[in-house]
């Protein structure tokens, strides 16, 4: 899928809501964290993500093809994960008073990211036939 700005944001929000929530529900007991914390982290990825997508859209303008290779979608996990961790650690994420252990956060964040990325790179096209031709827009 080669995104347009609104498609980026819509795809991120919908996939985090459906795929991200499912993964969070499964991973939370495994990393011995509270649902309140992990879902707050998930919400953080979604909210901050809108800002990140604006930045990615800007960077994409420097590409002749106006595309966003799959690898970028995977590697952007690094800055996004780091920023969210810094905010958690500084106590700046609403409803999370104490940051979860780093390992628990890293496992949860990576699992969500990988699952969303994998679904966006293929299976998403099965129910949503027109999604890839509309720059990732669902609405």
């Amino acid at each position: 899928m080669v995104p347009v700005l609104s498609g980026r944001i819509q795809t991120r929000l919908v996939l985090l809501l459906i795929v991200g929530s499912a993964v969070t529900a499964v991973v939370t007991p495994l990393v011995v964290a509270g649902y309140r914390t992990t879902f707050a982290v998930l919400a953080g990825v979604a909210v901050l993500g809108v800002g990140w997508e604006l930045l990615y859209h800007l960077l994409m303008q420097f590409r002749w093809e106006k595309d966003w290779p799959s690898l970028f979608g995977l590697l952007t996990a690094v800055p996004e994960g780091l920023l969210l961790w810094l905010l958690l650690d500084a106590g700046l994420v609403p409803t999370v008073d104490t940051a979860p252990p780093l390992a628990a956060y890293a496992i949860h964040f990576t699992a969500v990211w990988l699952a969303v990325w994998l679904v966006a790179n293929g299976p998403m096209r099965v129910p949503f036939l027109r999604w890839r031709f509309r720059g990732g827009r669902l609405a």
């Binding site: 899928m1 080669v2 347009v4 002749w64 093809e65 106006k66 595309d67 031709f133 720059g135």
Partner: peptide
Amino acid sequence: YQGFNYPKSVWGGQLKA
């Protein structure tokens, strides 16, 4: 040089729009 015969976003991205 170009990967395909048009920039990739003509098939679904911002150039298509």
